[in-house]
Design a protein around this nucleic acid. Structure first.
Length: 850
DNA sequence: CTAGGGTTAG
């Protein structure tokens, strides 16, 4: 009390202080504006100390001190000052400032700690406190803290404040609690405190938490029932839901409203509109909005790029990309990632890699999305080396293989598994798959591995994994289609049917188009083209792949007319016909012996369909002509090729030489294959068989020894037959089956019976797999014959016997099967590496073209 | 002294 009136001693002034003016005066001059001029904490502390020593620390002065401390970020001093005072209404302001200060600096946990401290010191938060607190809870996604603050706001009666209510809705949204957000929103209506922000917040809730329909519905109620005028934030919240719903007419209305209300000037609204039109595939409209935007940022460009990329207008993607460079738009990680992914998705893997390098040199840091994009580029071109490089990059840089930008996904590791599998390193892929603990595997992890096995590894392993998967998770449409591909390659009709049934049982809406396409392919490759047609007929939507799949099916079953019919229809319907379509047509002609038609299509490829023939088309034509015995024409075609003939073309010629026993031409073709440094195991076997068929045994021995010398391994032929209890596989001369004796007995019985009706073994095929002289009974050993015998033994009368062979069927077996089909009560459906043969009543559907 | 915003992927 006495010291209060003491005058500060001027001599106490610290000599090192550079602004003596502050201290050259007496206490009454230390006024608030003066204190606020302090630029450093130490200045404030000096004044603080002075005031204490003068005992003139009034509440009023303290208040200015506290706010100065807070504004300078020295919250500890502010807190220690606040703790000295009993709670008061005016003091709450300082707590609010403190809590806000931490929030503004992203220190949300500390913000909440202060709130708890304040509460424990018996201060009562007010309507300003809660919004800061809820914001902090939302930012750290803590429903616990949020809900307890919510409870406190009820106790204090501040929950009827519109700011508090809006803060709550936002908080629950950020915590992912849509129900709670909606509850708060509804409670607010009871006390009638809604404002535009409340509506914006609840719309945002639905938009962010995956309920676009409800977001749109809330917009309707906001405008139609409660007559609120949407503002720029409303539009930014509701246009993305329109985009994801494909609701372009509502989007257009909002666009119109934005123009009338001049909200269109807001760049964010513009970006949303561009994105909405782009996602609805309306690139012209998107471009109009984009061009009319006065202010654009990198996002405006990004959404345009993404839009063009989505609809496959890749030239426009590149154009925009170049324009961005010219206009010096600073590209961000999204721009680069989108460009990389655009290239990768078009199969332009090396271009994708090039863009990735440019990105690195531009200094923009790649993120998870960038890496998966560039990895998919590596996968698309099968570049293992680059893929490994990216893998190393991911390890060396702070990129979490098991986290995406949202922190909840295995994107990078899944993409790595996919990349390794597509680069034919299936075992490496599997090792990575195994390194992900089962609990962390998601449906994509399983799908890429199953897809890897079904396309580049062992389809049996794919199906095994598919079964294992059910222990942990359920397949999606992508998984299903991968499994169907595996069934198709194994001709596993039974499993294929089960998967088809599963897809039908578990469909939410319709079976997706691409799954149906896989089904057609699966049924066709499993020998049931009728069921493939059934799937085709029951589809409500078809694309070029659908039509091509059915056409391929008809082609490989020898239904040339039907295949050509499909092709004509496709053409009439205006489908884009590409190299693949044409190749399928040519093969259909080849498999049905339609030489003239094939020639006609081939000759008019460029003029009528605008497709330049590639090496595969030439190979197919060589096959077509050669098979028909027109080997000279085939050779002429090769010589007329505008490019250097690749090995496939010569292999096709060689295999025709085998059929027609043309030794010299065969040798010529084989020489070409060797010159092209292609160690094709099939070509050696073919050549050796040509020599064998003409009795040139020394040459046979020479080729065999050459193969041994060069380490060329002949792929072992094997056949499998689908039975009730699963699939049984036979190799050449296989005696490992428990019922081997019975199988051989059945086989020799049948062989004897067909000899009686005119079958003569074609001995030269015996050399297919052996190199000793015992040619006699060896024909009996062929895997397809063993499979057939097993089928006769186990499959019920009248049912088809379905056999699949990994190589081309041997000529003698083909003849034998034709005879056997006369004496057994089964249709024999044989799939070899090139097509289907349906043997029935002494006829084969291939009519000799195989 | 108070709350709310866009884009990229398998």
């Amino acid at each position: 009390m006495i010291r209060r009136h003491l005058i500060p001693n001027a001599a106490a002034k610290p000599h090192h202080y550079h602004k003596p003016s502050l201290f050259s005066t007496s206490p009454p001059d230390i006024t608030p504006p003066f204190i606020h001029k302090c630029k450093t904490v130490s200045q404030v502390k000096l004044i603080h100390g002075k005031l204490i020593s003068c005992a003139i620390l009034t509440l009023n002065r303290t208040s200015h001190l506290i706010s100065t401390y807070i504004s300078l970020g020295c919250s500890s001093s502010a807190v220690s000052l606040l703790r000295r005072f009993p709670p008061s209404d005016s003091g709450v302001y300082h707590w609010n400032s403190l809590i806000r200060f931490y929030g503004e600096n992203g220190r949300f946990s500390e913000s909440l700690s202060l709130f708890r401290l304040m509460h424990s010191l018996s201060w009562t938060p007010d309507n300003y406190t809660f919004p800061f607190v809820f914001k902090a809870c939302g930012e750290i996604s803590s429903v616990r803290a949020g809900a307890s603050a919510h409870a406190l706001s009820r106790v204090t009666g501040f929950n009827s404040n519109v700011f508090v209510g809006n803060g709550l809705v936002a908080m629950y949204t950020r915590c992912g609690c849509l129900g709670d957000a909606r509850k708060v929103f509804d409670e607010m209506s009871v006390i009638g405190v809604w404002d535009v922000v409340s509506w914006n917040s609840i719309i945002e809730s639905y938009a962010k938490l995956g309920k676009p329909k409800m977001a749109v519905e809330m917009l309707r109620r906001m405008t139609n029932e409660f007559y609120f005028r949407p503002d720029d934030i409303t539009l930014v919240n509701v246009i993305p839901p329109c985009a994801s719903l494909g609701a372009h007419s509502l989007g257009k209305q909002l666009h119109g409203y934005a123009i009338r209300s001049e909200i269109i000037e807001n760049m964010f609204v513009g970006n949303c509109l561009v994105d909405m039109y782009a996602k609805c595939g309306m690139m012209d409209e998107a471009n109009t909005v984009f061009s009319n935007m006065r202010l654009k940022d990198v996002v405006s460009w990004n959404v345009m790029v993404a839009g063009y990329s989505e609809v496959g207008r890749f030239d426009d993607v590149v154009r925009l990309f170049e324009e961005m460079r010219e206009e010096k738009i600073k590209m961000d990680v999204v721009t680069w990632s989108a460009a990389i992914s655009g290239y990768a998705q078009r199969g332009l893997g090396y271009e994708a890699l090039g863009v990735f390098r440019q990105m690195l040199s531009s200094g923009v840091k790649p993120n998870e999305v960038t890496l998966i994009s560039v990895l998919s580029g590596c996968a698309s071109v099968g570049s293992l080396m680059h893929g490994k490089e990216i893998h190393c990059y991911a390890i060396k840089h702070p990129i979490d293989l098991c986290r995406n930008v949202h922190g909840d996904d295995n994107m990078v590791i899944n993409q790595l598994i996919d990349m390794y599998a597509k680069c034919k390193e299936v075992d490496t892929a599997r090792a990575m798959f195994d390194s992900v603990s089962p609990i962390d595997r998601d449906v994509v992890t399983w799908t890429v591995m199953i897809g890897g096995y079904s396309q580049h590894g062992d389809a049996n392993k794919a199906l095994k994994l598919f079964t294992e998967m059910f222990e942990q998770t359920r397949p999606n449409a992508f998984t299903i289609s991968c499994a169907l591909v595996a069934c198709a390659s194994l001709a596993a009709l039974r499993v294929g049917k089960q998967i088809h049934a599963y897809a039908l049982r578990n469909q939410k809406d319709a079976v997706p188009l691409f799954v149906s396409n896989c089904l057609i392919d699966m049924y066709a490759k499993c020998g049931d083209i009728g069921k493939g047609r059934f799937v085709f007929d029951s589809m409500t939507e078809r694309n070029e792949v659908t039509w091509t799949s059915l056409m391929t099916g008809y082609g490989m079953h020898g239904y040339g007319e039907e295949a050509l019919g499909i092709f004509d229809e496709m053409w009439k319907m205006g489908f884009k016909l590409d190299g693949v379509t044409l190749l399928v047509v040519l093969y259909a002609c080849s498999h049905s012996g339609m030489i003239d038609e094939g020639m006609e299509y081939f000759n008019s490829m460029e003029t009528d369909f605008g497709v330049t023939p590639g090496p595969e088309h030439y190979a197919c034509m060589v096959d077509l002509l050669g098979r028909a015995g027109r080997l000279d024409a085939a050779l002429r075609l090769i010589e007329e090729m505008p490019m250097d003939p690749p090995p496939v073309v010569w292999v096709a010629l060689l295999s025709c030489c085998r059929i027609h026993r043309k030794v010299e031409l065969g040798e010529y073709a084989a020489k070409k294959i060797t010159e092209l440094a292609s160690n094709n195991d099939g070509s050696y076997t073919l050549l050796s068989n040509i020599y064998a068929s003409t009795g040139r045994w020394k040459d046979v021995a020479r080729v065999r020894s050459l193969m041994r010398h060069k380490g060329v391994k002949k792929r072992p032929g094997c056949s499998w037959v689908e039975g009730v209890k699963g699939t049984t596989t036979f190799f050449v001369g296989d005696k490992t089956h428990p019922r081997a004796n019975e199988i051989y007995q059945v086989l020799s019985d049948h062989m004897q019976r067909i000899k009686d009706i005119g079958y003569v073994p074609e001995k030269d095929f015996a050399l297919h797999d052996v190199d000793d002289e015992e040619k006699g009974d060896l024909l009996l050993d062929h895997s397809e014959k063993l499979a057939l015998a097993y089928g006769i033994l186990t499959i019920s009368q009248g049912a088809a016997i379905r056999i699949t062979k990994n190589l081309r069927v041997c000529g003698d077996c083909h003849t034998a099967f034709t005879y056997i089909s006369r004496i057994i009560d089964h249709e024999i459906i044989l799939r070899d590496s090139s097509r289907f043969h349906h043997f029935k009543n002494g006829m084969c559907s291939c009519k000799g073209y195989w």
